[in-house]
Design a protein around this nucleic acid. Structure first.
Lengths: 206, 206
DNA sequence: AGGATTCTTTGCGGAATGGTACAAAAAGAG
DNA sequence: CTCTTTTTGTACCATTCCGCAAAGAATCCT
């Protein structure tokens, strides 16, 4: 039911828009929005500016498309991870460990989160980026909080889902920030384990 | 023992470098490094480009000077706040509340933390900014951790200073990120209170 | 007063920026 | 085969960018 076989009329595209968006995002990811030039994007995607322009609009629209892709991907991954019914402590552990691996992926190995790493700077003067970032954070808070409500008994004593939810998001934020400074994976994962200890209480024993 | 009265030889400066740095920082704070032009800085400081250049070096040196000022100011403020001997819970409460006020100060009211809000984007491709940001985070972690060691009994049960320290820093990070999206002060302060609850355990009762 | 020294101002130049016009090219429709 | 439609490549434009050179202005020293 994809029905993308609509037989377009004119000359066919010589590129896959999805892959192009991916490569463009990689550049924004490293440099941020303002420091990325159209020449950078053209070089990274292999196609020239008019093609980029025709496919995505201007530089800002391309950036927003990349941001939104990351928002949707991150949201889907988080929802999937939270949907399991294993103990909450293990869920969080897996989520944070995976997050660290993603934040340290890529050629440079310290890109962190695309949204936190670039849209935060952009947010003050760019309403579109700000709104998307707000939405991302709100969705993350909501996903954690809802899951914590289902397993409220597994939270640390006296901690409510409404308190733990934003602090789980906060763990993403600090990991994203620290990853961008070049901190190593083990050290980041240790911080993730510490966050789990605060949210769920210290590990039973050994 | 300031001895800044060294009677400089030539024409005296028509501006106060400290104030100029402050105004320049305000521009970087809103726009980030890459999106700020020398014209923006000249307009905000009131002096023209060659004077800026002579006083601070190029744009990057000016940015680094602004970053380092924020790092020193934040470090001093944190050390001072942590030096008191009131209950740990209250100390953290005060620190996070004040932090929110600072993050929401300024004309736009949503600038967040200058370092987290702008240097994080810059960090991947700018070693100097990355190192300064690393140092800032390490110092913050260390200050919290050391203070927690002095009052380890006031931490939540089973939580060690080494775990709580980075999570106190993480609270700064999430507040900085959220502030830049325009979240209101009360909501931010509620997150700060939640962080205190996680670090020190839930409040005794009412 | 006159020279030395430092800062300020004006204006410039080379490079890079985001964006676009236009013609050539590649496909389908008739 | 010809016409239409869409994409591609080249070249270009106007603007903005950072940085600097050179001349003028303000102060100190002798």
């Amino acid at each position: 039911m994809v029905q993308k076989e609509a037989k377009p009329r004119g000359r066919p595209r010589s590129f896959d828009p999805d892959e192009v968006l991916d490569r463009a995002r990689a550049v924004f990811w490293n440099l941020g929005y303002a420091a990325t030039s159209l020449d950078d994007l053209a070089a990274a995607t292999g196609l020239n500016r008019p093609s980029l322009y025709a496919a995505f609009g201007d530089k800002h629209a391309l950036y927003m498309a990349a941001l939104d892709r990351s928002r949707r991907e991150a949201g889907a991954a988080l929802s999937a991870a939270l949907a399991t019914e294993i103990p909450l402590r293990q869920i969080l552990q897996v989520i944070f460990d995976r997050t660290v691996d993603i934040y340290r992926a890529g050629e440079v190995g310290q890109r962190g989160c695309f949204l936190i790493g670039t849209a935060v700077t952009q947010a003050v003067d760019d309403p579109a980026a700000r709104d998307l970032l707000s939405r991302f954070i709100a969705e993350t808070d909501a996903a954690f909080t809802a899951r914590f409500q289902r397993s409220a008994a597994e939270l640390a004593p006296g901690i409510t889902p409404a308190v733990a939810g934003p602090m789980a998001s906060a763990t993403f934020h600090t990991l994203a920030v620290r990853a961008r400074t070049g901190v190593g994976g083990p050290e980041l994962k240790a911080i993730g384990r510490g966050a789990v200890a605060l949210i769920c209480g210290p590990a039973p024993h050994a």
